[in-house]
Design a protein around this nucleic acid. Structure first.
Length: 461
RNA sequence: GGCGGCAUAGCCAAGCGGUAAGGCGACGGUCUGCAAAACCGUUAUACGUCGGUUCGAGUCCGACUGCCGCCUCCA
């Protein structure tokens, strides 16, 4: 049984999907007006892990992640850059897609944008009018949160408390300070679409209610996003969708923040590292491993040190895979039975960990034990090629979920190959000074050599 | 002010009432021409502090302290 932490219930619950062995997931994606930073990467990676894991466990997954392409930010930025909102958002969507691909994030089944769902948004608001949740003001259409009994349930906010917390100027005539815009009337120079109430654009929250309903079922399984979206965004989505008479999401999952110096990484604090900056310092797979290797709900502190640790830990797995791959090529016999039990145990530990609300630490501990055991076998020369093949298959199986390992070794270019051979020759003649010089030279070229009893092995630094 | 989260070794981190997983780093060892990798060993009488419950508590309860987040756009 897979257990997940449900923000609504504030505890771990058994995952019971609407339809057996099928799961519909909606993830609130980024607003596309600027480069994505590691925090966006974390959210995307966390729920990519969820999606991959559920699919590994036999679920047929429908995964929807939106791009928010119309809001104050995109409008402002487009203005500042003297371009259109559409040009700007399309440009950044492409950038996000590239970055996400590097992070090993699988493409969503649907990646909807609110600007392409205006008719659906308009009819959704009409429905809210019919059900007397919406009202009209001078600058837009608003949702009356006092008409929805469960308002505040997700975030644990009470209506009365919210009144005190209000720090923004509220529009004239709002019935409750927490009422939010469903539709904002046109301002000069801003993109707008027609509606029964006047030209304008959708409010922020409405897009997710509409698009999740469009691409998933009326009641779907898991709604995900960053913790900062719990209030007001997700609270408001619930109010809209339930208000409109839909059952909406069964479970709510939220990822913790990526911190830098123990503070939330965010655009407004200006303390962010873009994904691209991170990729200049570390390989995308190392970044993914870093983002994955700590529990998704816990805060994760970014620093060069923590990234380096992740890189080293990943290196150990990749070195392992490289060595096993060589053993697979070898002639060594032996039965595969010996390794079967180990693989089974590792798989059990791995799934037991991830079943428990994606406890990656537990899963990786099982994998670490497995790696050590197989290393011991190899050390003793007891890993047959058939067994090695099974180990590789198992690591590939695991990697369908983790998406971090490297199985392909890129070919060496001729010059490097020649240097390696030259060094082997020098070592045979016991010309160690020359051999060491060549090794240093190769190291500077990014090639690390390891002399083993079976010969010299190379890998990339 | 309201709501919520977190505090475990040098660092990251699991643990969910039965006597401290795993990883990174460091040190010692085996192996090696030397390294590297791998393996073995060492690295928390102790889980923010103080009380309480219990035969027994990082693990439950209370108080306190310190961090962080949400309450406003935000993954």
């Amino acid at each position: 049984m897979i257990r997940i932490y449900d923000t609504m219930k504030k505890k771990k619950v058994d995952l019971e999907t609407v339809e057996k062995k099928k799961v519909g997931i909606y993830l609130c994606g980024p607003t596309v007006y600027d480069y994505g930073h590691l925090g966006h990467g974390r959210s995307a990676v966390c729920f990519d892990l969820l999606r991959r894991y559920l699919s590994y466990r036999g679920y047929e997954v429908t995964f929807v992640r939106n791009w928010t392409d119309i809001d104050d930010k995109t409008i402002e930025r487009a203005k500042a850059e003297h371009t259109t909102v559409q040009e700007l958002t399309e440009r950044f969507i492409r950038i996000y897609e590239e970055d996400f691909e590097k992070l090993g994030i699988l493409e969503p089944d649907e990646a909807p944008k609110p600007t392409e769902h205006i008719p659906g948004i308009v009819s959704f608001i009409e429905r809210l009018f019919e059900r007397e949740h919406a009202y009209l003001l001078e600058d837009g259409v608003y949702y009356d949160i006092s008409t929805f009994d469960d308002y505040g349930k997700l975030s644990g906010q009470r209506l009365e408390d919210l009144k005190q917390g209000v720090r923004v100027d509220v529009a004239e005539g709002k019935r409750n300070p927490g009422d939010f815009a469903l539709w904002k009337f046109e301002k000069p120079g801003e993109p707008s679409w027609p509606s029964p109430w006047g030209n304008g654009r959708p409010g922020w929250h409405i897009e997710c209610s509409v698009m999740s309903g469009r691409y998933l079922k009326e009641e779907f399984d898991i709604h995900c996003g960053g913790q900062d979206l719990i209030f007001p965004h997700h609270e408001d989505e619930i109010a809209q969708s339930r208000g409109a008479g839909y059952r909406f999401a069964r479970y709510w999952m939220h990822n913790g923040f990526l911190n830098i110096d123990n503070e939330k990484m965010s655009k407004s604090l200006g303390n962010f590292f873009t994904l691209r900056q991170a990729f200049e310092l570390f390989s995308p797979k190392a970044v993914r491993f870093f983002l994955i290797s700590s529990h998704y709900r816990a805060p994760l502190n970014f620093s060069e040190e923590t990234l380096r640790q992740a890189e080293a830990a990943l290196q150990r797995f990749n070195d392992f895979i490289g060595r096993v791959a060589e053993a697979k090529q070898g002639e060594r016999g032996g039965t595969a039975e010996t390794i079967d039990a180990g693989i089974r145990r590792a798989r059990e530990g791995f799934t037991e960990g991830l079943d428990d609300d994606l406890n990656v630490s537990k899963a990786l501990a099982a994998l670490s034990d497995f790696v050590r055991d197989v290393n011991v076998l190899m050390e003793k020369g007891e890993l047959g090629s058939e067994s090695a093949g099974l180990v590789i298959e198992f690591m590939k199986e695991i990697d369908k979920v983790l998406g971090v390992f490297s199985f392909e070794k890129k070919k060496l270019d001729g010059e490097i190959e020649k240097l390696i051979e030259e060094r082997i020759f020098a070592r045979r003649k016991k010309e160690f000074a020359r051999a060491d010089a060549i090794r240093d030279r190769l190291l500077k070229m990014g090639i690390v050599l390891e002399d083993t009893k079976d010969g010299t092995r190379w890998k990339r630094a």
